[in-house]
Design a protein around this nucleic acid. Structure first.
Lengths: 223, 223
DNA sequence: GATAATTGGCTCACCAATGGATTAGAGAGG
DNA sequence: CCTCTCTAATCCATTGGTGAGCCAATTATC
């Protein structure tokens, strides 16, 4: 008998997990089954699984079973769920990463109709006179730019950011920092950005968006 | 038998709803009917439906029935659902937007311990000899960089990308394009990136990551 | 309008599956 | 002989599924 049976079994199991043998349900067979099929005592299986759990490869739950950790907290919905805790600063940082590029993509990829939609949102934001209406068309302006980027995932990522922003602290911050002067400033920056889009200038659009977000960030976060 | 019956049923029902099986009446059969046709206890059906309601996929009303909520399309779960359709090219584009900045953030924000974790993933990738194990540590390397960026949302966004990549066409593409030479190339680029992180050079890290992703993109998408 | 049928909400007792833990013993190797 | 690993058996705690029953709200029927 080899003196390190459990380690061997651990290695073998790790390989079978990585190869996706039980990936369909994300669940490893129960200890007792593994013991009989591998012709080994349940104790030994348990020690092998202890190793894998130490490594974080699996998790075990009394009464439920042994589960592969990849894909455990990794379903799209669960990840989205965890995003709820993000701070306004974190969200702003991500916007700075995504939105300028989205604007650049839109400048090159958007159809005339899509740009017309962006323009419509801008016009409505200009005309709106109360804060909620302006907020709505402001958000719509940004979202329609993402929708014009021709990257489905990018658009949906913005949808996610928008969902996050519509929650908890953001609304208060926005309300507190809103003013007529800032609204005019936003509208002016939107207008400049729109001009870059309409003239199909990706780098100009990227710059205009970056500038606009810098303004927003300064207003909301005070820096 | 299977200790995850309710979860399986939830998955199956979600699929049937998405397929439009009951779209005409917007209504799912009563719990008791589902129980008998699926041959399980009503309690189990209820647990499965609880999951779907949590996700916002259905709503239930005493005395009326269980209804499909095709509404708004703004819930996080639904956004996540739409992301499933993203093409590999779209995903790659987003990675190019996020990962170089994540590397730059990590260079400035990471603790020594976090960088040690990144290094560990790199070492394990170097040592792994079969493709699934390498894939695992490769993904882990990238993810630990995001975890070191100190931006929760950024980290979760990468989790989202990873979840998308672990689905459908990606696995085939990776398998088809994998080779020992490419593995060595990836490891070398990871090493260069890691050096920039350890020497706390944000712009160097950003550049190294951008270069690495260019290689990956060329290999996977052929351009 | 009154009554019955339908439908989701809830609880309970019961059982099987499963991981957690302990104990005792058999062999192997120093 | 001592130590270490594996075997074997046993008991525990938790979880999830079953089956049954009753309640509450809604809808159909007369």
């Amino acid at each position: 008998m080899a003196r390190v049976l459990a380690a061997d079994i651990a290695r073998s199991l790790r390989q079978r997990i990585d190869a996706g043998e039980w990936a369909d349900h994300g669940r490893v067979p129960p200890e007792r089954d593994l013991a009989t099929t591998l012709g080994v005592a349940r104790n030994t299986i348990r020690r092998a699984l202890d190793v894998l759990r130490e490594e974080g490869a699996i998790s075990r739950h009394i009464g439920r079973g042994t589960f592969i950790r990849a894909g455990e907290g990794q379903s799209l919905a669960e990840v989205a769920q965890r995003m709820r805790g993000s701070s306004p600063a974190d969200i702003m940082e991500i916007r700075l990463l995504l939105e300028p590029s989205a604007a650049a993509f839109a400048a090159t990829n958007a159809s005339a109709g899509e740009l017309a939609n962006v323009e419509e949102a801008h016009r409505n934001a200009l005309l709106s006179d109360d804060m909620p209406t302006f907020e709505h068309w402001d958000a719509e302006f940004h979202h329609r730019i993402f929708a014009s980027s021709r990257n489905v995932l990018l658009k949906e990522m913005h949808g996610l950011l928008r969902a996050l922003r519509s929650q908890s602290p953001w609304f208060d911050i926005k309300k507190r920092t809103f003013s007529e002067e800032r609204r005019r400033r936003y509208c002016a920056e939107h207008g400049a950005l729109l001009d870059n889009l309409l003239s199909r200038d990706p780098e100009g659009a990227r710059g205009a968006m970056a500038e606009h977000l810098a303004t927003v960030s300064a207003n909301l976060l005070g820096r």
